[in-house]
Write a protein that binds this DNA or RNA. Structure first.
Lengths: 219, 219
DNA sequence: TAAAATCTGTTGAATTTTCAACAAAACGGA
DNA sequence: TCCGTTTTGTTGAAAATTCAACAGATTTTA
């Protein structure tokens, strides 16, 4: 487990937890690590929603697929970030979304019931973990607000521009990579892929942006 | 304060809190009640985000207005529900959304810092409140997932149908009221109002739904 | 009660998106 | 390196949304 400490220290779940306590805590929580190949399903829609996931390496995507097969990408999960914590904390029966490995992944899984319900050892760190979960959920809620601000725009160009402006702000630079290929970006922005490609082409011609694959520059 | 107990007991923030403790707690937290007329701003975008709001009577709406004046309605807040808790818990500087009274409202305001940071009295209920906040935030996250499932649909009809199906499920009946007038429903679904009116008319003609004002029936 | 303000439904034109199909480019594996 | 697969850009036609304008209905206010 020790080899994961460097990344786990960055995970908001373990804020304010000393290195000394972290190892014992992981044992007590029954944390385990699993690996997934690219495109493999980490959590399937409909599966029990008991576990919190933490991406240790690689990346994952939260997706919804509707009755007609249309995919929405809700979020991209990078190393040290958590996923499925809302469903585990709300104690819903089953997952309403799927989580897919976007590249080869190492994922730590923790049964959330071990966090929410005090264990027989009566460890004091439960309170800190619950506080950290609360903070994380509040942050996730804000991310959803930002996503809604983007997808509520009515045209492909407005959505893309709103998304790129936010990414530039987050990265602190006008030159940055996005975590999506074209189809994925379209499924995040809720637009048609070919329309998105066309719009990117137009905006390049107009000198608004520069782009090559996943790299974008705001001009 | 006692006159609000009946509704406060239904607020998820006070789950597992005994009536005896509730009054003392409200004093300790510095809770206060304010009233707002219809359409008045409870929290303005850009204002400090320190307070959690609880709707005691009436209802409120969470709205985003973009640069061009386009309004999105993120959520409707009914009595006993909280709002702005995510921003207060995440300790962001200022509100990224506005909260508007949808009808005459009584609102309880609690400075979230009194919940997150233990007070000098060292009351034991902080832990329970933080646990309750975590549960509430998890539930709110799930609500956003549902909203995204609705607004990610590409046509007005699909969005409306997805919304109505969810409302029917929530109300436990095929006959129910929605908390929005036409323009508000359009701003929630992220579609054009006139297009929405036209689509409702078509669906009535096709015998899919019945509707009058805010009342809908799924046939 | 009457007048004013707001809300709703309807229309047609303009804009935009979606859809399907295809070819070029990029990628990955043998 | 070559071949098969995946990704990306491009196109045009069909479908849907948006927009502006207006009239009738409803609600609010004086």
């Amino acid at each position: 487990m020790k080899k994961y400490f460097k990344i786990l220290r960055k995970c908001p779940l373990f804020d304010q937890i000393t290195d000394d306590n972290l190892l014992r805590m992981l044992v007590c929580l029954g944390a385990r690590v699993e690996t997934f190949e690219k495109k493999y399903t980490i959590f399937a829609e409909g599966a029990p929603a008991n576990h919190i996931g933490i991406v240790l390496s690689g990346s994952a995507q939260i997706i919804q697929v509707d009755y007609f097969g249309n995919r929405s990408i809700l979020n991209s999960i990078e190393p040290a970030q958590m996923f499925a914590e809302a469903f585990a904390c709300a104690e819903v029966r089953s997952m309403p979304v799927s989580v897919i490995a976007n590249e080869p992944c190492e994922v730590m899984l923790i049964d959330c019931r071990h966090i929410l319900h005090t264990c027989s050892n009566n460890c004091e760190f439960h309170q800190q973990l619950i506080f950290n979960l609360m903070k994380d959920l509040a942050t996730k809620t804000i991310m959803f607000h930002q996503r809604i601000e983007i997808t509520s725009k009515r045209t492909t160009r407005e959505k893309l521009m709103a998304y790129l402006l936010l990414q530039a702000k987050k990265s602190g630079s006008n030159s940055f990579d996005v975590p999506f290929d074209r189809q994925e970006l379209a499924d995040y922005l809720e637009v048609d892929r070919s329309g998105l490609s066309a719009e990117i082409g137009k905006m390049k011609k107009e000198g608004l942006i520069d782009n090559s694959k996943k790299h974008f520059v705001l001009l």
